[in-house]
């Protein structure tokens, strides 16, 4: 009896919450895709970023914007766009940040080639260090004249 009373109060309370304070997520018609198109759709999503959450892909995010972006991708694929065209559509609006894998272009050369450059630099430094220690180990001969000069200075 008491439980029913609580439920009644709860139901009444919920009814008092003003409607229309939630984001409108309209139900849109489902866009059917062919098997090949569906596969392309599924393959595209992990590489696209949900701009609202910024750390989730369109594949995993349930944010309202991610749903809208997914719907747009479906629409574009259904309209016959290639994968590259779909990506370009989103890049034109949201910038390259929308792509998880940045394209190889002058602006990103440092990003793509930097690690290889660092490895080359490290190899060069290692080679220099190794060579010097080998030289030092193989020629223990001292510059007697320089030593004498130093000793004279401290006198």
């Amino acid at each position: 009896m008491k439980a029913m009373l609580y439920m009644l109060v709860l139901a009444f309370g919920l009814a008092l919450i003003p409607a229309g304070y939630a984001q409108v997520q309209s139900v849109r018609p489902y866009i059917p895709l062919g098997a090949e198109q569906e596969a392309r759709y599924m393959a595209l999503l992990p590489g696209l970023r949900c701009m609202q959450c910024q750390n989730e892909s369109l594949e995993s995010s349930q944010a309202a914007l991610a749903q809208d972006m997914r719907y747009k991708v479906r629409e574009l694929i259904a309209a016959g766009d290639s994968d590259a065209q779909v990506r370009q559509y989103l890049v034109d609006r949201y910038g390259q940040y929308v792509l998880y894998k940045p394209p190889f272009q002058p602006l990103t050369w440092l990003l793509w080639l930097g690690p290889f450059g660092l490895v080359l630099l490290a190899m060069f430094v290692a080679w220099r260090v190794a060579r010097r220690s080998r030289l030092e180990a193989s020629s223990p001969a001292l510059d007697e004249a320089a030593l004498k000069r130093l000793l004279d200075e401290t006198k």
């Binding site: 409108v24 309209s26 609202q52 914007l65 747009k72 609006r93 949201y94």
Partner: peptide, 14 residues
């Protein structure tokens, strides 16, 4: 813009 279509087209994210 009930569907957010213009928003998407303009790159609105928040």
């Amino acid at each position: 813009d009930p569907e957010g279509a213009m928003g998407l087209n303009w790159g609105v994210y928040g």
